[in-house]
C-alpha cells in the first residue's frame, strides 16, 4: 500500500508528530496511558484471575497481602480483598469499566455540546440566547451535582431491580449531560468566527441548506479545540465516575469500577489491609494523570502561538 505508507510518512513528518517526539512528558504519558488502555481492554486475557467467577473464589485466600510481603503469595501479585478476589485482576476489570464510562460520557457530552454549539453559533438570535443561558445556568452548578441529580432522577423513575444492569448507562448519561457546556461554548465561539468567513457565504450563495453548511463546512473547522477539550474531559469524566462510585451512587459492587474498588477497600484501610484501596487508587491516578498530560501537550501542540 504505497498510498498508506506515504500518508504514514507525512504524519511522521507533521508538526504534531515532531512536537510529540520532542516532548518527554508527552511520550511518558502516552506510554502510561497505553498500558492502562491495553490492560483494561484485554483484561479477560491478561488478568491472572476472573474476579467475577464466583466458583473460582477461595475464601481461604481472603485478605492476602501483596506478593512481596512475608505472607504474600505469588499467584496474587497485589494481594486479595475480603472475598478472596485478586486485587490486580480487579483493577484491570475495574479500569475497563472506568474507561468505558469515561469515553462514553465524553462522546455523549461532545455530540450534545458540539451540536448545540454549532446551532447556537450559526443560528444566532433567540435560539443562541436560549442555549447559552441554559449553559450559563448549568455552569453555576458543580458537574458532580448535575451528575448526582440526573442519577437520582433516573433512580426514582426506574425500578430498583432494573437499575443494577443499567447503572453503566445511567452513569454515562449523567456524566455526559454534566459536561456538554464546555464543548458548546468553545464550538459556539469558533463558529461565530468561522461563519463570517467567505467560504460560508459562498456556500450560501450556492444554495446549500443551513444544516449542510453547519456539518459539512463549519464542523471540520471547529473540531481542533474540541479534541483538546475531549482529552482533558476524559480524565475529568473518569474521576467524576470514580467519585460517584466512591459515594455509592455509581457502579455496584458486582461490576466494580476503580471508584467502587477504592470505596470497598476504604473500609479495610484502618484495619491494616491497605493494599485493597491503595492499588486501585494508584491506578486511577496513573490513568487520569497520563490522559491529562496528553491533553495539555495536545493543547500546546495545536496552539500555533505557543510554538
Amino acid at each position: 500500500m504505497p498510498a498508506a505508507e506515504s500518508r504514514w510518512r507525512r504524519w511522521l513528518d507533521s508538526d504534531i508528530a515532531w512536537s510529540f517526539r520532542r516532548s518527554p512528558v508527552a511520550i511518558l504519558a502516552a506510554v502510561v496511558a497505553l498500558i492502562c488502555v491495553v490492560g483494561a481492554l484485554f483484561a479477560g486475557w491478561i488478568a491472572p484471575h476472573d474476579p467475577f467467577d464466583l466458583a473460582s473464589l477461595e475464601l481461604m485466600d481472603a485478605l492476602l497481602p501483596p506478593a512481596w510481603t512475608a505472607e504474600g503469595r505469588a499467584t496474587y501479585l497485589l494481594g486479595t480483598d475480603d472475598q478472596g478476589r485478586d486485587v490486580l485482576s480487579g483493577i484491570l476489570y475495574g479500569a475497563r469499566i472506568s474507561l468505558l464510562v469515561g469515553v462514553g460520557s465524553v462522546v455523549v457530552a461532545m455530540v450534545l455540546g458540539v451540536s448545540l454549539g454549532l446551532l447556537a453559533g450559526y443560528a444566532g438570535g433567540s435560539i443562541e440566547a436560549f442555549i447559552m443561558r441554559v449553559a450559563d445556568v448549568q455552569l453555576s452548578f458543580p458537574a458532580i451535582l448535575i451528575a448526582l441529580l440526573v442519577d437520582g432522577v433516573v433512580r426514582v423513575a426506574m425500578p430498583d431491580s432494573a437499575h443494577g444492569g443499567q447503572a453503566l448507562w445511567v452513569l454515562i448519561a449523567s456524566i455526559g449531560l454534566s459536561g456538554w457546556v464546555q464543548y458548546a461554548r468553545t464550538v459556539r465561539g469558533s463558529t461565530l468566527v468561522e461563519k463570517r468567513k467567505e467560504y460560508v457565504q459562498a456556500a450560501r450563495v450556492i444554495g446549500r441548506h443551513p444544516v449542510a453548511i453547519m456539518f459539512h463546512h463549519l464542523l471540520p473547522n471547529v473540531l481542533g479545540p474540541v479534541l483538546v477539550i475531549a482529552t482533558i474531559h476524559l480524565a475529568t469524566a473518569i474521576i467524576t465516575e470514580a467519585t460517584l462510585s466512591f459515594l455509592g451512587v455509581g457502579m455496584p459492587v458486582t461490576t466494580p469500577s476503580l471508584g467502587t474498588l477504592i470505596r470497598v477497600g476504604n473500609d479495610f484501610l484502618f484495619s491494616g489491609e491497605w493494599w485493597i484501596t491503595v492499588f486501585p487508587g494508584l491506578a486511577l491516578v496513573a490513568l487520569a494523570l497520563s490522559v491529562n498530560l496528553l491533553g495539555d501537550w495536545l493543547r500546546d501542540a495545536l496552539n500555533p502561538r505557543l510554538r
Binding site: 468567513k197 467560504y199 457565504q201 450556492i206 463546512h217 471540520p220 473547522n221
Partner: peptide
C-alpha cells in the same frame, strides 16, 4: 448567479 469574494484565504474551506 455566483459570487467571487475578496479574501482568497477565507473564501475556500481549508479542510
Amino acid at each position: 448567479m455566483q459570487m467571487i469574494f475578496q479574501d482568497p484565504y477565507a473564501s475556500l474551506n481549508p479542510r
